[in-house]
């Protein structure tokens, strides 16, 4: 599309209709009163040489949506079963971005359950001694396996957040891909460690039920279609205090993911908890230990 056409077209727009459409969006849009924290961001969906360059582009969109803090994990290119060298390299990408973006963004360390020893060492490097405040486990190894226990235990000691990807694919999960049921098994072995059920299994109608009894499990609602009714069911079955907004940007838009919360018929207090309150509460101890005041 010709850029000049856009600009010319913009100048001839009628003033009155412009105002109406702006007012409308202002009303619908996230208000600054909501302190929005985004649980789930990657360096994807934008171009840029360095991680910090890509964050800059993503933050520009986040600014428009009044998103206050963003959590990044994993680098690029994607690696579903990274060897220790590879997850260290990807975590270095995150560390690089963190060093340039102050406390606007936070980071979780990407680990691989097939390498528990090296994963523990990475927790020491990135979280215990570094600036990161949580870990991300993706699809390398099913989280129900006991081999992951030392990782969970160490995160519990550090009060670091644990984000475990889950899906419930009708066509079948990948070989190392966890379901919310797998997560419930893991959570039962660590009843005092908070764990986040990423994507709520995609099929949230089953995912919510699968983790309902595991009180230490919160759900991440990002990274799926903005299907109506998701957040209402989550609040009904888990309580708003166990529901956490995140986007999976830049692969997803902030808009589609925020819409799950803003479109839900829930209380204002619940909305604030989901958009940021819950995550801030979960992360406050580890942030304080690093001298970050939120």
């Amino acid at each position: 599309m010709d850029r000049r056409f856009f600009l010319e077209a913009a100048t001839v727009a009628s003033a009155s209709s412009l105002l109406t459409s702006r007012q409308l969006l202002a009303e619908l849009a996230p208000t600054n009163g909501d302190d929005i924290w985004d649980l789930h961001c990657h360096f994807s969906g934008v171009v840029g040489e360095t991680p910090a360059d890509r964050v800059e582009k993503i933050v520009e969109y986040a600014d428009r949506m009044a998103i206050h803090r963003l959590i990044f994990f994993m680098g690029w290119p994607w690696s579903t079963a990274p060897k220790p060298d590879e997850f260290r390299r990807q975590n270095d990408q995150v560390l690089d971005a963190l060093s340039k973006w102050g406390h606007r963004i936070f980071g979780f360390a990407y680990l691989n359950g097939h390498h528990p020893e090296e994963s523990l060492a990475e927790i020491e490097r990135c979280v215990a001694e570094g600036p990161m405040i949580g870990v991300k486990l993706w699809v390398a190894r099913k989280c129900s396996e006991e081999a992951l226990d030392p990782i969970i235990k160490r995160c519990g000691e550090l009060q670091a957040a644990i984000y475990q990807h889950t899906w419930l694919k009708t066509q079948g999960n990948g070989p190392g891909e966890s379901t919310p049921m797998d997560l419930a098994i893991l959570a039962a072995r660590h009843p005092n460690v908070p764990i986040i059920c990423g994507h709520t299994g995609g099929d949230w109608t089953r995912g919510i039920r699968a983790v309902r009894a595991a009180k230490n499990v919160s759900i991440g609602i990002g990274g799926s279609e903005p299907t109506a009714g998701f957040v209402e069911m989550a609040v009904r079955e888990l309580g708003a205090e166990r529901v956490i907004y995140g986007s999976d940007a830049g692969g997803r838009s902030f808009s589609s993911q925020l819409a799950k919360v803003y479109g839900a018929e829930i209380s204002e207090a619940g909305r604030r908890q989901i958009l940021g309150g819950n995550l801030r509460r979960m992360l406050t101890p580890i942030l304080r230990s690093k001298g970050v005041n939120v």
Binding site: L7, A9, T11, S21, R64, P226, S256, A259, G263
Partner: peptide, 28 residues
Amino acid sequence: HFPFFNLEASLFKFRESALGGAITEAIQ
């Protein structure tokens, strides 16, 4: 794709992208 999707999803996209009034009007 409302009511299967939250209606806000499509609406918010006009805030997330800086399109300008005329383009917004054309699409909307």
